[in-house]
Design a protein around this nucleic acid. Sequence first.
DNA 1: TCTCATTAATCGATTTTTCCTATTAATTAT
DNA 2: ATAATTAATAGGAAAAATCGATTAATGAGA
Lengths: 301, 301
Amino acid sequence: MRLPSIRQLQYLQAVVSLRHFAQAAERCHVTQSTLSTGIQELEGLLGAQLLERSKRKVLPTPLGLAMADKAEQLLSLAAQMVEEAQQDRPLLSGPLRLGVIPTIGPFLLPQVLPSVRERFPQLELYLVEAESAVLLKKLEEGDLDCAIFALPYELGRMESQVFASETFWVALPKGHRLASGGPIAPAQLVDDELLLLEEGHCLRDHALSACHRRDLQQKAAFQGTSLYTLIEMVAGGQGITFLPNMAVNSALMQHKDIELRPLAEAGPHRELALVWRKEYYRKVDLEALTACLSELLENGV
Amino acid sequence: MRLPSIRQLQYLQAVVSLRHFAQAAERCHVTQSTLSTGIQELEGLLGAQLLERSKRKVLPTPLGLAMADKAEQLLSLAAQMVEEAQQDRPLLSGPLRLGVIPTIGPFLLPQVLPSVRERFPQLELYLVEAESAVLLKKLEEGDLDCAIFALPYELGRMESQVFASETFWVALPKGHRLASGGPIAPAQLVDDELLLLEEGHCLRDHALSACHRRDLQQKAAFQGTSLYTLIEMVAGGQGITFLPNMAVNSALMQHKDIELRPLAEAGPHRELALVWRKEYYRKVDLEALTACLSELLENGV
DNA sequence: TCTCATTAATCGATTTTTCCTATTAATTAT
DNA sequence: ATAATTAATAGGAAAAATCGATTAATGAGA
């Protein structure tokens, strides 16, 4: 079905409300001739007469009136569209779907979200906690706007912005031979059972990388489902593990049967980054968010 | 404010629903290139991004989704317009504003309207009774669709169609010298006081014309406001008058103190016609109406 | 890792549409 | 009668929409 054009509807609306071709043309910023042919085309398209014309009067037919009415609705809808689109939203307002990996979420978010919410009160955050691979998939599918990852991680076509660095700590059972003293070098731990999160957590790879080990086929019983369970296993004397800075500082990680020592290995051991599709339509917002996070973490929140 | 075009909205609707430029282009019967630039123009117009594009995926932004939604509404409204306009109404259906002069209305309408309504059950008649000049004005202003006049009458730019002819009868008080016998010639009435309707009624002119008299400045007290009052005046012996056929046949005009004789004057004395603007948009309906009236009157209803 | 296929964007040319100027025909007002 | 007003029309110019071909990015498969 061939539809009338917006222009034609504007012509109709004008001529029905003014009852005068020349005046209507002026309102539409076209010549009388243009408007005249426009109306004729509309009538042809609709297959019905919309106006009675004489040299002295322009008289809408009942159908013309009805059509003008609908045209008005339609035009106002179109105008609404433009208005709605053109009002530029303030930075970081409206819905934002943010993914976080489980080894960051519980430690970072309680720390920073109150300030973020205070700074951007119109922001509506929808949080999703999942492993990196899942988040990456959701990002690609458009189910998330952005996500917080721990790097290094293969991000594919995503863009990212690092907003914090972390070093690792060694978590030892109380009474371990290295339990007191200064930083611990990876070489000192070769004889210890290294407890890791189950497959899929990037922290597993980062930890291995920090102590220059290859991946080891651990028994499922020795794989933690979360840092909390891992800590319990360390406290139980089943081995040692590495914890990121952020977890160490968290009150949730305090445990009376655990000793913590810095890992003596140069450079940051993982970096926290905000990640998004490179086609994402509001990168400025995300850049503002990373700036905000970075600032909050530098100032110790 | 510059508005988006219908075409652009179709493009948006298609690409958002299909998530694919080439397929959307096919649905819109244009090339991918055309659709692509169309969407870009729309985005430029709205000043906002509607889609995230990558080579593997087309992802509407929240605004894009909202706009596509509105676009759909708008397009369906436009389609509705076309549909509504294109369904052709049956003959003589819907509202019709019909004017009638007072010397016809009360006699003709009760006679014909039942049959008309029966024949065109979807017709919604709005009746206006007024003198010819008033009806003509209303016709010109578009306040009426058509009107029933008695001719001759100067109709200006109107078109008309005669559907009946009438001869006049002479109404005499009982006991008048001409009260019995055959038809009466105008010359026989020169000595009688001729009673007429007040200024404005065309019957006044038609009556004068029928007896070849010039207009006479009658005293207001001798001018009737309706045929009923005129008849009462005749019955009271104040003079004579002329009545059209139709009124004579009407039961309303029976009066014991009146005698009626045909006027012996060649040809019809007035003609009944349906009148409309020559620009009127549904002349076929009116032609059907005159045909119907004409037929009804010929067959004696 | 290297093609090959797919996809949206881009460019230049062409067609289509839109629009304007000038004029006409009908009508009204003076 | 004469001038002014009005909507329609014709012809040409300007603007736009569209197409075909190409490009660059990406993903799939060998």
